[in-house]
Design a binder for these strands. Structure first.
Lengths: 196, 196
DNA sequence: CCTAACTGACTAACTAGTCAGTCAAATAGA
DNA sequence: TCTATTTGACTGACTAGTTAGTCAGTTAGG
């Protein structure tokens, strides 16, 4: 199966999942979004389970690639991070967040899902912790515990994610508070007078 | 329908939802957990949708009652809050968190769910903001913005909740970081030297 | 002509919801 | 008080519709 076909199926799955939700996600609906028959779907993926695992992999890969940043400056790297998580792409679309939360909610019932989400989280935290370590070493950030700070930041990101999906809260609001938290905690910029 | 019956059905729904997940939650499975027939369920609740809306109401009511605290001291009220969210009940059980996240993930596809979750969140944030306001007035907390701080705290709580369900992370870990955040942000206790 | 990609029609299993009838306990009538 | 009737809670069997997955056969390109 070529990459183009895979991408088309994954995009169709994403659309179907956003429109109908995980509970009402059927092979027929994915096929409809793909504009092919249900049997064509089964030609490429033996079972629904197999398709959905591929979809989780694809989703995580997209997430990883968005977070990738080669900048040397820790501050800059953090900005890219925030931009990837709360930027205009997230603001307008939201399908990514909806699909990902659907699978997070399914994690307690699927070891496969859970394992991959744990891996994805570990990678994100490691990226964050490393950036914080570098920032401290460069004298740009305060001397916080990098692992703890990364974990709490990840928790805040997870929280923003749920709120965006479950409460339909604007990512811009979450972004403002998250950046404020980073500024205060890491001692970036000028005014830690009245922190939040 | 008496309260006892309702409680039994709600508990059965909770068990079925935790065991099978929202996607595989059927009237038959709820009935099995209740040890009654599927028809008995339809005798009390006309449709599955009606039953699940009742279940969300019941879940939110349980959440609210857990957060209730009459203490006058803001610090104490905050402690009760943390205890209710991360305490031993949450540590051992987890069914509450799993069920709630299942419905949060479903929110984009159900206005009813979304409305109720938004209300529940507003109540939680208002409780937090008021406690913070009182704490500032009493000179116990730093002069932070109560609404912003409450919103970010709520986001961190939401995040801990997802991590507990999706990543199977221990609540005790989340609690430690959350309390550290509160201590530093609100200026509780002694050492804001090396904040996280 | 061969093969990869695909279709439409099919099946077996499962779904929400219905319905006629059961049964015990409450209620009413004498 | 004894009996007749009603009522609320429930059951097992049923229906109509939907689901994942199969399969024989079609089609287009090399």
């Amino acid at each position: 199966m070529d990459d183009e076909t895979e991408a088309a199926v994954m995009a169709a799955t994403s659309r179907a999942l956003c429109e109908h939700g995980y509970a009402d996600l059927t092979m027929q609906r994915i096929a409809d979004e793909w504009d092919k028959s249900k049997a064509a779907l089964h030609y490429h993926y033996d079972t629904k389970e197999e398709l959905l695992e591929s979809f989780l992999d694809w989703t995580i890969a997209r997430f990883d690639s968005r977070l990738a940043c080669e900048a040397a400056n820790p501050c800059e790297r953090l900005d890219t991070f925030v931009e990837a998580l709360f930027g205009p792409a997230e603001e307008s679309d939201g399908s990514f967040a909806i699909a990902l939360l659907a699978m997070k909610a399914q994690a307690p019932h699927s070891e496969t899902y859970r394992d991959r989400l744990v891996e994805m989280d570990a990678r994100m935290r490691e990226t964050l912790a490393e950036t914080i370590r570098d920032g401290i070493e460069a004298g740009q950030f305060r001397e916080v515990d990098p692992e703890d700070t990364a974990r709490f930041a990840a928790t805040a990101i997870n929280g923003s994610h749920v709120r965006r999906v479950a409460l339909d809260e604007r990512p811009a609001e979450a972004r403002r508070l998250f950046e404020q938290y980073l500024d205060v905690t890491l001692g970036r910029e000028q005014t830690p007078e009245v922190p939040v």
